[in-house]
């Protein structure tokens, strides 16, 4: 029996990177898994196929987290398919790096809308079924950028710091209904999203990581799933850093 046997899990942005690892590990722990993706149908199909090959139910839902009606439809589809929703992993996020002084307002807006707005929309939509169940786990993906100024990441850093504040506020509000809300803040992880940063400044950054290496998506996913499991019943409103000891 896996640690998430029978649980219904929704991962946003689950077709690639850390999200995909969360989908695959949750399935391996016995969960019924749904994930959203925005546009990359090929990646979504690959993730679905990988999970189904292990004999586990998996639902891929195309949804843009900035569009409330699409978020609503995705959450409804999960509840209809699994009859409940136990875990929400708010992972979907984008970067539009640029020095703040040169940043296009559209890039500011897009990052805030996807990273912070999407987290809000999904959290609000799952809160109702979770309240009715009197149980739920919400795990938000933050970033080391939330607390460590990153050049060219004013929009991304602001969105992630806001997600941490949102996490604490939601934890306080939802605790009486048996719902925990936590965040995981990864450092530099080997994903498509961080490829450019790693190739431009990888050696310098590696020097600043105590473990002297970048993280793997599954090393983040394992912490996310710990927070979703029965091993984390007394943790809420926390941010767990998974960064190999970045700038300690």
């Amino acid at each position: 029996m896996g640690r998430l046997a029978g649980r219904a899990v929704l991962v946003t942005g689950g077709s690639r990177g850390i999200g995909r690892s969360c989908v695959e590990l949750a399935a391996a722990e016995g969960a019924r898994v749904a994930f959203t993706y925005r546009a990359n149908t090929a990646a979504a199909e690959a993730t679905t196929a990988a999970v189904r090959a292990t004999g586990v139910e998996c639902l891929a839902l195309q949804a843009d987290g900035t569009d409330r009606s699409q978020v609503q439809a995705a959450v409804q589809a999960v509840v209809e398919a699994f009859d409940r929703i136990d875990v929400l992993i708010n992972n979907a996020g984008i970067i539009r790096d640029q020095l703040m002084v040169a940043m296009e307002p559209d890039d500011w807006d897009a990052v805030l809308a996807t990273n912070l707005g999407g987290t809000f929309h999904f959290t609000q939509e799952v809160a109702q079924p979770m309240m009715l169940q009197k149980a739920g786990r919400i795990i938000n993906l933050s970033s080391a950028a939330a607390t460590q100024g990153g050049r060219g990441q004013a929009n991304y850093a602001a969105s992630k710091a806001a997600i941490e504040a949102f996490t604490r506020a939601c934890a306080v509000e939802l605790a009486p209904k048996g719902i925990t809300v936590n965040a995981v803040a990864p450092g530099l992880i080997e994903t498509d999203m961080s490829r450019e940063v790693r190739s431009l400044a990888g050696d310098r950054i590696r020097e600043e990581i105590a473990l002297r290496r970048f993280g793997m998506p599954e090393e983040v996913a394992r912490v996310v799933l710990f927070l979703a499991s029965d091993e984390a019943t007394y943790i809420t409103g926390q941010v767990i850093h998974v960064d190999g000891g970045l700038r300690l």
Binding site: Q128, M131, L132, E173, L174, P176, K177
Partner: peptide, 10 residues
């Protein structure tokens, strides 16, 4: 509490 009213409504 206020959240309980929403819970009741749901």
């Amino acid at each position: 509490e206020s959240l309980d009213f929403l819970d009741i409504v749901f």
